[in-house]
Structure formats: C-alpha cells, structure tokens
Amino acid sequence: MSTDLRDTADQERITRLRATLTTEFEAQTARLTELTADTGDPGEAHTRSALIAATRQSLAQIGDALNRMAEGSYGTCARCEAPIPAERLEILPHARFCVPCQQKQG
C-alpha cells in the first residue's frame, strides 16, 4: 500500500496555515483589546476607530478561513470553486477567491 505524497503535503500545508491563522487570530484579538481600551485622548479617537474597524475585519477574515478549514472547503474559490493555488494561500492564508475571481470581485 502506497501513501499519496500529495495528500500528505497538502495536509501538512493546511496544518501549517491553520497554525499561522490561529496565531494571527490571537494577535489580532489582543490588538483589538488594546485598541478598545479608552485612553481618554480625543485626538486619537478617529485613528483608533479606523484601527478597530480594520482589526475587526481582519479577525472576521481569519475566522472565516478557520471555519472553511473545519468544513473542508478551505482552498477552494468561493466563486468558481476551482482550487486556489498554494502559493496564493501561503501569501494570503485567508483568501476566499482565486486571482481571476478576486479581480472580478473588485
């Protein structure tokens, strides 16, 4: 009985990406906690508000990617259902779309 090296390599890559996403989720959660602490400086309110929104968006994207991993749909384009290249996922682990579909998405 032979082992399919591609499946093993894919599983190792997914495990590595899951660890990266989990670490990033934890870091973004800590950042959000820091950002939502009231410093009392009204001059920072606008900047802090923008940073909070960006951090929440990042957390949502990471959470969605971790959910797709749990569901087994991670690495498949949400639009055309083609596999998302491993290189794209290495660079942008929370990617939902392949490059052509992302360009159409806007």
Score class of each variant (00 low, 15 high):
30 A>F: 08
51 L>R: 09
40 G>W: 00
50 A>H: 08
20 T>P: 00
61 Q>S: 13
16 R>P: 00
64 D>V: 03
55 T>A: 06
66 L>P: 01
15 T>G: 12
42 P>V: 11
67 N>F: 04
56 R>D: 12
21 L>M: 06
46 H>E: 14
61 Q>V: 03
58 S>K: 09
65 A>E: 00
46 H>S: 15
60 A>G: 13
60 A>R: 14
36 T>W: 06
65 A>I: 00
52 I>S: 02
42 P>L: 10
32 L>G: 06
32 L>P: 03
41 D>Q: 06
53 A>F: 06
59 L>S: 00
36 T>H: 06
55 T>G: 02
53 A>M: 09
57 Q>G: 15
46 H>P: 03
62 I>K: 01
25 F>T: 04
33 T>P: 02
32 L>V: 05
34 E>D: 15
50 A>D: 09
64 D>C: 04
30 A>E: 09
42 P>Y: 00
53 A>H: 08
41 D>T: 02
25 F>Q: 12
21 L>R: 03
63 G>M: 01
51 L>Q: 09
30 A>W: 07
26 E>F: 03
46 H>W: 08
25 F>R: 15
20 T>C: 08
56 R>Y: 05
44 E>V: 05
25 F>L: 15
53 A>T: 10
16 R>Q: 15
29 T>I: 00
16 R>C: 09
49 S>N: 10
46 H>K: 14
38 D>I: 02
49 S>P: 01
15 T>C: 04
51 L>F: 01
34 E>G: 07
32 L>Q: 08
35 L>M: 06
49 S>T: 12
54 A>R: 10
37 A>R: 12
19 A>S: 15
20 T>Q: 13
30 A>H: 09
32 L>E: 05
18 R>D: 01
26 E>K: 09
38 D>C: 07
62 I>C: 02
28 Q>Y: 04
23 T>D: 13
26 E>I: 08
26 E>D: 14
26 E>C: 08
22 T>G: 10
27 A>E: 10
56 R>G: 14
40 G>R: 02
62 I>P: 01
22 T>A: 11
31 R>I: 03
39 T>H: 12
50 A>N: 06
46 H>N: 14
37 A>E: 14
59 L>E: 08
13 R>G: 03
16 R>K: 15
18 R>P: 01
54 A>I: 01
39 T>D: 15
36 T>N: 13
52 I>C: 06
49 S>V: 00
57 Q>T: 15
49 S>A: 15
